[in-house]
């Protein structure tokens, strides 16, 4: 099993490396560079040459790639084009805020989705199923900015419980933007719950019709014990990968929701950086998102190995 994890890890590293190359080349291929962005209209003649000299843009691409990627390995993403701040600092708090938001949405959403999925699966085609399934689909189909706007309308404008817009700086202690945090994670929970719930529901139905559940019933195992001990662990296996995708999506910065609530997270920083043509920041955020994706999927793989004894020993035999 260890060999398998190492193999997956190596594969993940290769993926991250490939992504870094693509990001670097993509930015290279764009017309203009950091200096044209900084200097804007003054970007010509001597000023441009000097800027490039200072920022080391005249060195060959390979050298710059090695500098950049070497920096990432030590946690140094370089300087932002605007304001020449250290990107690591700029991103650090935003990343924390985005992680908090994701954790909030996941901490509530995943258990809730699994719970609703189990209930819907067990009461298939009866009212709890119909209620939860249609509810989840409904929640999923409302665009997030609409849901967000409605929540703001209700809680900020009608009820006045929270301010409609935060102007909290990114490095503020989390408690200060708690109201936005609640609203934003509610919207995110609504968005993601349907996928996971429907997956759990479908596999729960399949598992409950299976031979081993019938066997457990005829062995005299009480109903809820069958559900939790015999059926649920098996029903969760196919759901793990859907959950992993959801987690990766959440951690990758949820642009629209962060922008609507003016939430100081990674997604909003990305939007700002793009509109400012701050290419170093865009590169850095994209790298972070890529690493998150790879990492989360790796965890999901390991988790399904741990939960599925069949997969585990099959791989052992194969390895």
């Amino acid at each position: 099993m260890l060999a398998l994890i190492i193999r997956r890890l190596a594969l993940g590293l290769v993926t991250v490396w490939l992504v870094s190359v693509i990001i670097f080349l993509g930015v290279e291929a764009l017309p203009g560079d950091a200096c044209t962005a900084i200097l804007e209209r003054d970007a010509h003649g001597e000023a441009l040459a000097k800027c490039r000299e200072v920022m080391g843009l005249n060195t060959p691409a390979l050298t710059r790639y090695l500098d950049w990627s070497g920096g990432i390995l030590t946690g140094d993403f370089g300087l932002s084009a605007n304001g020449q701040e250290r990107i690591a600092e700029l991103v650090g708090y935003r990343l924390r805020n985005s992680l908090l938001l994701a954790a909030g949405a996941l901490g509530v959403g995943i258990p809730l989705a699994i719970f609703l999925g189990v209930i819907a699966g067990l009461w298939r085609d009866r009212w709890p199923d119909i209620l939860f399934s249609t509810g989840a689909i409904f929640a999923m189909t409302i665009p997030e900015f609409v849901a967000a706007t409605i929540l703001i309308l209700i809680f900020a404008i009608w009820l006045g419980w929270v301010p409609a817009i935060v102007l909290t700086p990114a490095d503020a202690p989390p408690l200060e933007f708690f109201p936005e945090f609640i609203l934003a994670s509610t919207v995110l929970t609504m968005l993601m719950i349907a996928h996971v719930m429907r997956m759990v529901r479908a596999s729960m139905i399949e598992v409950m019709a299976g031979d081993y559940v019938q066997m457990a019933t005829l062995k005299g195992v009480p109903y809820w014990r069958i559900v939790f001990r015999h059926a649920l662990p098996n029903a969760l296996l196919p759901a793990i990968n859907v959950i992993a995708l959801t987690v990766a999506w959440l951690l990758g910065g949820v642009v629209v929701v962060e922008v609507v609530f003016n939430y100081p997270g990674l997604g909003r920083l990305l939007v700002d950086a793009i509109s400012d043509r701050d290419l170093p920041v865009v590169q850095a955020i994209t790298m972070i998102v890529a690493i998150t994706y790879v990492g989360v999927n790796l965890v999901a793989d390991i988790l399904s190995l741990a939960l599925n004894p069949r997969l585990r020993s099959h791989q052992e035999r194969g390895a």
């Binding site: 031979d211 081993y212 019938q214 066997m215 001990r229 015999h230 004894p309």
Partner: peptide, 8 residues
């Protein structure tokens, strides 16, 4: 083979 719970 199918009547025994695979994860137990």
């Amino acid at each position: 083979g199918q009547a025994l719970t695979p994860t137990m």
